[in-house]
Amino acid sequence: MKLEVRLFSYLRDGRGKEVYLDVKEDAIVADVIKMLEIEDNEVANVLINNFNADSSSTLKEGDSVSLFPLLAGG
């Protein structure tokens, strides 16, 4: 199934802002992270269609997955 993956902060380095992936039907977010060669512990925030999720969340056709690394700031 087709997904849009939006990357933020330094996860964009070498990958770009948006990546379009074709994944297997029962893929979970962790699979997407692995496909993009991002370390597991580099992703702190996962949003699916802008709602809070995590690496174990399931996906469906056309989902937009946003991945953020651990951030800080004021």
């Binding site: 949003l47 951030l71 700031g73």
Partner: peptide, 25 residues
Amino acid sequence: EQPATGKGLPSMGTAMLVNLVNNNG
């Protein structure tokens, strides 16, 4: 060694929060 102080803040400054805070509505 911490992602926030070692990479995030140095790279993007505090404005790195814009997309995350916004995408959480």
